[in-house]
Each structure stands twice: as C-alpha cells, then as structure tokens.
Design a protein around this nucleic acid. Structure first.
Lengths: 351, 351
DNA sequence: ATGAAAGCGCTAACAC
DNA sequence: GTGTTAGCGCTTTCAT
C-alpha cells in the first residue's frame, strides 16, 4: 500500500508559483487577494488533489469547529438516537462537527470521555451527565472553561445552560388519564441505573429526569379523583433480565395492577414481552403507558400511549445555545421543554 | 468566560525542571527514561492539570488513532444503531476513536463526508457506500490510499475488504418458510432509495444488499414446492408516506397477498400501521416477514418473524480488519456472514 | 496584493 | 538518561 505523502499547502504553493501565505488566503478566502490569483491557486490545488489538513489548521487557529457530545446510553436507546441525530444535523447546519461518546451511565467512563473530547480540542460540550451529584469532574475549570450545555437531566449545582423536559407534569398527566379511564390498581416500573435487580423501596435516583418521573407519578396518585385502590412501585435495574423479573413480580402480586407505567422503553418492552408470553393482551387485560415515543410504539396494535418528549427540539436547541456561547454570547439559561401525553390504544377504558 | 490558555507541555517542563522532550517521554512512556523522572513529571503534570493536545500530537506523529465511519441512514435505523455501537465498542477496545457521519443515501453528501474524514486525518475508513456504481469518489487515490473496509453492501469493483451478509439465501429461506406454511399469495415490499413513490416494475437498485434480498425472494418464488398462485412486487421509496401507500395498494389489489415480505424495518412498520388501521391482525389476517431484527420486533405480540443479520459480528469484524490493515497487514478479503431466519408468530399457519 | 517569518503543541532523531 | 533541535501543516501578523 503506497501511502504517498499527502499534498500539502507547500506543494500547491510551489506548483502555482506563489507563497504558502497566498495559497492559504486563496483557499480560505480572507485578507486582500487578487481574484485571478484565487482562481489560479484553486485550479492548481484541485489538480493536485489538495485537501486541507484540518488538524494543522485547527492547531494553528485555536478552534476546531467541533462540539463534543457525551451521553449516557447508546444508539439503541429511543431518546439518544433521535437526540443525536438532531444534534448532528443542527451542528452541521451551523458549520460544526460532532464528536460522539457514550458512557453507559458510568461516571468513570464519563470522566475519560470528557477528557478525550477536551484533548481533541472541542470548542464546546453537550453533556448528558450520568449523575446529578457526582460531577466534580465537570467543573468549569476541569472542562477548560469551555461552553457547556447540559441536556435531559440537571446537575444539582446549576452552573451551565440546561435543557430538560417537563417530565413531572407529564407523568402526573399520564396517571390522571389512566384513573379517568377507570384504573385503580396502578403499577409503576421505574428504571434506575446502578441498582441490582429490582426493589420496592425507592433507592437513591442519580438522575433528575427519572426522579421527576417518579415524583410526577406520585403526585398523580395523590391528586387523582377516585383514589386508586392499590399502588405498587418497583425500581429496576436497566437490564432485560431484571425488567422481565420485575414485570413478572408485578403481575404475580396479590393485587396485580391493571395498568403499568414504565419510565422508559426498555421497561415497556419487558411489559410487552412478559404479557405476551402469558397471553395477556395489551389494552385489554393489561394497560401500559410509557415514557418516550418511537415509530414502533406508534405502529403497534394497539398503539402504545406514551409521554412524548420534544427530543428533536431539545437537540436542536442544545446546539443553537452552545454555538451561540462558543461564538461569544454566553448565557446560563435553564430551559424546560414541555412533554405531552399521546393517547393511543394501550390503555383500556374500564368504565 | 475566562478562556485561560491551556496548560502545555512547556509549562510542565518549566515546572518540573526538565526539557519538553523529557516530559513527552515521561508522559507517553517511550524511549529511555528514569523511573523517578517519570513519577516526578507525572505528578507535576497532574497538579498543573495538563492534558495532551491530541491535535498537536497527531499532527506530529502522523496518525490520529481515529477511524472514520461513513454510513447511509442514521441512528434511528435498526441496522445502523447496532452496527455503530459494535464498531465504537470494538474500536475503543483496540485503542481507536470513531468519527461518525451519515449520508442519507446521497452520493454527494457521501463525498463531502469522506472528504471531511480525510481532512481530519483518520487512519482508516469504514464505509457503507450509497451506491454500487457511483463510486468514482472512492478510489484508493481519492481516499488517500488509506485502509478501507466496506460493510453491508458491495461495490461493483471489489477493491477493498468487504463484509456483507448472506441476504439472498436468507430471503429465499423466508419465502420457502412461508410457502411451507401454506401461503400462496405473496407480496413483496422492497425499499429502494432514489425512486419516487412506489412502482411495480423493478427499478435500478443501487444497493447490492437490497438487490440480493430481491433476488433471494425471487429464487424463493421460483424454487418453492407448490408454486404460489399470485405474486406481487412493489418497489418503494423509503418514506413513511410512500410505504403506507404501497401497503394500501397491496392490500387493495384484486388478489391481496396473505403475506408481505418487507426488505427493511421502515416497510415493516408501514405494514403494521396500515394493517392495524384496518383491524387486520398480524399473524392471522395478514402475515409478514421482515429483514433485520430489533428488540421491539421480538417483544411485540405476535413476535415478528425476521431475517436476523449478525450486525454486531459485522461491526466487530470490520474494525478488526481495518485496524489490522492500518497497523500494517493489508488484506483484501470478501467476507460474507450468514443471516438467518428467526421464526416467531407473524406468519399464519394456513395448512 | 503578496512574501517572509514566526509559532500553534507536540514528537523523534540526534547528540551528549 | 536527558537536552537540543527540527519540523508536522497550517494561519497570520508584519513588511514590502
């Protein structure tokens, strides 16, 4: 494999009979320069197959036109896939590239990921921090004083622009909707990273959005008109195995719920799976409402009633805010985008 | 925002009383150097909050430990999300970062994406080319003679290591399975990028994997035991709108199919949606087999019978092959990984 | 309008 | 074992 050295600006300069400085000016289009020179240099550059070395340019210029995205989870997650796409698209729109890294909700991995981003001289960062409290590695100083936007969840010290969704209100709305439909045996399946298996008592929840969902469910229970006869809470590890076991336990309890609220799609899938295996029909024998919409939740029969979050808006806004900060208008805003209930067929009308 | 200049190797050198070269050696761990010096320099570097500038290091060293991934479609696609995850994970395993770009099946976008990768000095490329034939921008020369691995589909000139899946065989297997179950009115819904709406006559298919699926379906039709009574082919644009219209047209035809084979998940979703709206039950009134497995296809009731491709293996292997080439063992292999049918409940047993 | 020269932060010969 | 030195490819004053 003949790895012939790349064509550099020197080669172009030599071939077109001007200096490197002139080539740079011609190709980057700045400073005073003769149009004829521009044309000539461009032609030569093209014929030589010259391609700018972005590394060298960035090193010299002190900016990379790149933003770092550090998120929990990966592309198989219904929040992350759409958010990432929105972020990439909007970044491209504004002339930026995106470096992506996922942390699997692990603070140590997050630390390394952020360091890698910084080492690669990103101009700013969009973070989905893995923990509300453990963020000593996310101080402005440790982040090189670079502009930062936090999305999906909050840090307990609101230092950066933060964009979240109104999950608490939406969760409450979901409960009220179910109760209105006559449900009075309510089950809640809440995914909490960092725990083992599942538990009935609420563990420490390191993520504000999850906590908000739990809180919203709770206020729904407290504020609904006919008080529900039974309410079961289950906090569950994010694995398929634990989720299936949790659903099984819910269904096998003395007073099984007529509806299960799930805090994310993985939990929803577990409900679908276990119910399916038992021949229980969703929207009939068992109802379900989940967080986060997806094409399949909409296409299924019955369609799954979900709390839809404005993921694209969120991603779009995150980039816009970040780039605005990078380009000189720093602002520490706390933005909450509304989430809303999409009623489809997964909630049985009991009365 | 005080963008204090970053701590550089010079600062560390000054603070620890040694030369820049020694700092570099101490921190990168190469050459001959005293262990005590290493310890000292490391301590100083840490206390100063020194972080290597990856740009400068890469510029100097001539390699970035980065591979570029240019794919069609985005993260909302069931193939791409898993493939990307597998690629990132394996790359990390081997000490590489991944630059990601998606092209929406557009050759022009692909061209720019590849150029950006090259400009950023990736050490190698993994490509899902948008067209079998239009790839004059993918010659070794245009790719800077860098190692390249093609995945998911082939170029008509096999110049690079290529990893695909045995879609033709699997597609045929799917048809034989359906016929064995007594289906004799077969519908085929094949997503083809670049066409407008949908059409009955086979258009030019710019993607080998799609062509293979179509071919496999066809050989299934030709080789099955009781010949099917009716067979309808529909080639469809990849939009939700066109897909829904195509399914509707299939269902409204004089001899509607008892089973529809879909070439990807978007088409499957359309079948689910339209059938659902009409109250037709999957696995009863209408059967379906799709390409590409997903968590939701497995969790649904009935579960969707799918052709599962070894996406993780494919991603894993792609990185392994690429890194091996980057590190000096170039090889132009044509690898085909087996795809296989997962039988679930979406195919009615008619006899 | 163009060229000369300095230097972004780093590594790797080459000396000692 | 450590320092000196020369760049990697590029941009950007400062001259002319």
């Amino acid at each position: 494999m003949a790895t012939n050295r790349n064509v550099t600006i020197n080669d172009v300069a030599a071939a077109s009979g001007v200096s490197r400085a002139t080539v740079s000016r011609a190709l980057s289009g700045y400073g005073r320069i003769n149009q004829a020179t521009i044309d000539h240099v461009q032609k030569v550059a093209e014929s030589l197959g010259y391609k700018q070395n972005a590394l060298a340019a960035a090193l010299r210029a002190g900016k990379t036109k790149t933003i770092g995205l550090v998120v929990i989870s990966d592309f198989t997650n219904a929040f992350f896939d759409r958010a990432t796409k929105a972020i990439i698209d909007q970044a491209k729109e504004l002339g930026y590239r995106v470096l992506i890294s996922h942390t699997d909700e692990d603070v140590e991995v997050e630390k390394i990921a952020v360091d890698t981003m910084l080492s690669n001289q990103v101009d700013g960062l969009i973070l989905v921090p893995s923990s509300t409290k453990k963020h000593s590695h996310l101080t402005p100083k440790k982040l090189g004083n670079k502009p930062v936007v936090i999305i999906d969840r909050k840090l307990d010290t609101p230092r950066y622009t933060t964009i979240t969704t109104g999950d608490e209100v939406a969760a409450e709305e979901a409960v009220l909707h179910a109760v209105e439909y006559g449900h009075s045996a309510l089950g809640f399946l809440i995914a909490v990273p960092g725990i083992d298996g599942f538990t009935k008592t609420q563990p420490e929840i390191p993520i504000t959005s999850v906590q908000e969902r739990a809180d919203g469910f709770l206020s729904g229970v407290q504020n609904c008109k006919p008080k529900p006869k039974s309410v079961s809470w289950l906090y569950c590890e994010g694995t398929e195995e634990a989720a299936n076991a949790a659903v099984t336990s819910l269904l096998d309890s003395p007073k099984p719920p007529s509806i299960i609220f799930t805090s994310n799609n993985d939990m929803l899938l577990a409900v679908l799976k276990v119910a399916g295996d038992r021949g229980i029909k969703i929207g009939k024998g068992l109802s379900v409402i989940s967080f986060d919409d997806s094409p399949w939740a909409a296409a299924m029969v019955p369609g799954i009633t979900v709390v839809a979050r404005p993921v694209e808006d969120l991603g779009h806004l995150a980039v816009t805010e970040l780039v605005s900060a990078i380009e000189g208008k720093p602002n520490h805003r706390q933005i909450v985008l509304p989430a809303h209930l999409i009623k489809r067929g997964s909630v049985a009308k009991l009365k």
